[in-house]
Design a protein around this nucleic acid. Structure first.
Lengths: 230, 230
DNA sequence: GTCTATATAGGGATAGAC
DNA sequence: GTCTATCCCTATATAGAC
């Protein structure tokens, strides 16, 4: 069970390099570099720069020359890691999928009462998107132009997330902890609120709203609707 | 005062051609066509096609040849209405701004009690985004790559909208109709929920949620939070 | 006012030196 | 394993016929 964002951050941060290592291993056939250490170092630069540039001007508007400028690599160097521009998307997406699956599943299973579980799920998602903001933003904004395979995975993970919330709410209604409501609408509302957190990150920062404040706010809104008149 | 979506739709629909005519008049210096009738006809085709294509693959990924194919115009014909690709954005944006300003202001001023006003504002925004879905979607998704002038306007109108809700909520709190809450957070939540309606239009259609259902749902959620324990 | 044909550049991709 | 130089196509933009 995670208590707050700082604790979460400490636990997960460690694994970022591990994830890139996984990305490298999963994509060995497309990558002509053999030494793992250099590959991981460069993949990190490539992924970070791609996210930064794509999020500021859009993936399509970002040229590979932009990317080389930002990451400090040469065109030839870059092409040792990808076969074409779309492979960049694949790198980005697989790296995000790996982290997301790993952590979301890990943190929402740790049980308690129904209300506590819902709050835990809200926090897990907010914390994750806080840590991986650039990836979530990219994934959302570029979703429509993703290659088929990546698009399928992106839709699937979106659905998975919404189902997690849906089930928690249905459980609560069945257990009479929550009153009878349209669970599906509530689940999609939660998702919309969680998305707003990473899509409008700057706005919340300007208002000095910390992630734990926002988590509590979302919980309060949801609960005041689900607990109903009492 | 508008009662439901059908009534709203009937009132506003009429003015679409008027708006394109305004767009033409405002952009006369960039457009080499003189006859208003043909200009309005072609501008309509251009705007509709651009919205459709940009929303399905992204503005940058849409080529002007795509646009000509979809709208049935030739490259030469198209360039009678624009000087360069960015001018397309200007056409789209000015057309949306004109409609949005006209209708939002018109429908939220018509008063009543505080709670009724908030509901009216929610409905006005939902109805408008329902009618102008393609434009709202475009405006949101392409916001980051808009030309400076258009970006400034887009940010301004976003802010205007959020301020409308903020003020309504603050009024309600001051009048002790609502209990004491963080009004700014509530306003930004309302906006997030309204945005979800046009960003995830398909999802709601698949769930058979009509716009008036959604309006009522948003109102209920907001009110159960703002009216508090009683 | 609308079309076809064409000029030009920008960006994805590759060859080959080191 | 990394770089520079270059290829070549695609997409924006324009000229000029009808």
């Amino acid at each position: 069970m995670i208590e707050n964002y700082e604790a979460f951050r400490g636990e997960v941060r460690l694994s970022k390099e591990d994830v890139i290592r996984d990305v490298f291993r999963q994509n060995k056939e497309r990558i002509s570099i053999k030494k793992e250490a250099t590959a991981v170092k460069n993949l990190t630069r490539i992924i970070d720069s791609t996210l930064r540039l794509a999020n500021s001007k859009g993936f399509h508007a970002m040229t590979l020359r932009d990317l080389c400028g930002d990451s400090g690599m040469s065109m030839g160097g870059l092409y040792a890691y990808i076969r074409n521009k779309d492979d960049l998307i694949h790198l980005i997406q697989s790296h995000g999928f790996i982290i997301t699956r790993r952590t979301l599943l890990h943190y929402t299973d740790e049980v308690q009462d129904v209300r506590g579980r819902l709050f835990a799920a809200i926090k897990a998602h907010l914390y994750l998107s806080e840590l991986m903001r650039a990836w979530f933003y990219f994934s959302y904004m570029e979703a429509k132009s993703l290659p088929v395979e990546e698009k399928r995975d992106a839709v699937a993970i979106e659905l998975e997330i919404e189902e997690i919330f849906l089930r928690l709410i249905e459980d609560g209604i069945e257990a009479k902890v929550y009153c009878s409501r349209n669970a599906r609408l509530v689940a999609s509302m939660i998702k919309a609120l969680l998305q707003d957190w990473y899509l409008k990150r700057r706005k919340y920062r300007d208002q000095n709203v910390a992630v734990d404040d926002y988590a509590a706010f979302v919980r309060d809104v949801i609960e005041s609707y689900l607990l109903g008149e009492r």
